[in-house]
Design a protein around this nucleic acid. Structure first.
Length: 275
DNA sequence: CACCCTACCTGGGCGC
DNA sequence: TGCGCCCAGGTAGGGT
């Protein structure tokens, strides 16, 4: 489910709800979500008495800054966070509960159980999995256009696939890659090696505009996404191609197509994005 | 080394 | 109704 705009919206809403709170205890109902440390008991023990000082985002990851550790959390397709009174009923698909000393809970819910959590010593998180190979996202000030260009132009893969690769550019997923390529007027099957310097700049600018607008709208809700206050996003009203197949293009009125690219549904306008 | 495909899960929608 | 497919905001990791 969540790409950069949804994760950023979750971060902004969650920060209002949990900063300064101290973890009393932790319950884990689906241990596979906990990737590090190996032993879930260690995970639980380490977290006790630690306070949440900040929540950062790197690409699609949320980073909870604690006293001694950083909790690196990825929501994958359907992960969500919500804050509840400890007495409230635990809804289905709740897999991890962080109980705070003030009687509230931070609860992680994930229908498909794909999400991951890594608890790592403060300061080590960018040197090891899963963050070590993560590229910058296009909204970061130190995003390197040169590095981006080299990674695209040395690849024989198609541009759709390249842009989904989080070691090339962070934060884009299936919705925002399709939207970015539409704005940049580039066909999703274009080989990286044949993307021009000018097109690389267009892709970067299109990604910035798309991601900024989507953050502004609180993300995109297609099926199930809500932020940490239970609110849906609004960017689905502004989608040009994603889930718009068989509808007229907003630019030229031609019919939006849907194809499969490396197993992912891919949407584009055949007139605006010629091969 | 680069890249593709499958597995990981559950639930909704559709055709029969 | 019910069953069996296909599909879904993602990404490790195994195989080619």
């Amino acid at each position: 489910m969540p790409e950069l705009p949804e994760v950023e919206t979750i971060r902004q809403t969650l920060i209002q709800l949990v900063i300064g709170k101290t973890i009393e205890s932790v319950d884990v109902y689906w241990p596979k979500i906990i990737q590090e440390p190996d032993d879930v008991k260690q995970f639980i023990t380490f977290l006790q008495k630690q306070t949440i000082h900040d929540i950062r985002r790197k690409g699609k990851f949320l980073l909870f800054d604690l006293d001694k550790h950083v909790l690196v959390s990825h929501l994958r397709m359907e992960g969500k966070y919500g804050v509840y009174d400890y007495k409230e009923e635990v809804v289905p698909h709740t897999h991890v509960i962080f109980h705070f000393t003030d009687g509230t809970d931070l609860r992680y819910q994930d229908v498909r159980k794909f999400g991951t959590m890594h608890l790592q010593e403060k300061g080590t998180e960018t040197t090891k999995k899963p963050l070590v190979l993560l590229a910058k996202d296009p909204l970061e000030a130190d995003f390197s256009l040169q590095d981006f260009k080299e990674k695209i132009q040395k690849s024989e893969r198609n541009i759709k696939n390249i842009l989904l690769d989080q070691s090339v550019v962070a934060g884009l997923g299936n919705i925002y890659v399709d939207e970015t390529l539409f704005l940049a007027r580039i066909h999703p099957l274009t080989k990286g090696i044949s993307v021009t310097d000018e097109q690389v700049i267009q892709i970067k600018q299109a990604a910035v505009i798309t991601l900024q607008d989507a953050v502004q709208q609180g993300g995109t809700t297609i099926r199930s996404y809500v932020n940490s206050q239970g609110q849906i996003g609004m960017f689905q009203q502004q989608l040009n191609v994603y889930a718009q197949n068989d509808k007229p293009c907003s630019n030229c009125e031609d019919t939006i197509m849907k194809i499969k690219v490396n197993g992912r549904g891919t949407h584009y306008c055949p007139t605006c994005q010629p091969i």
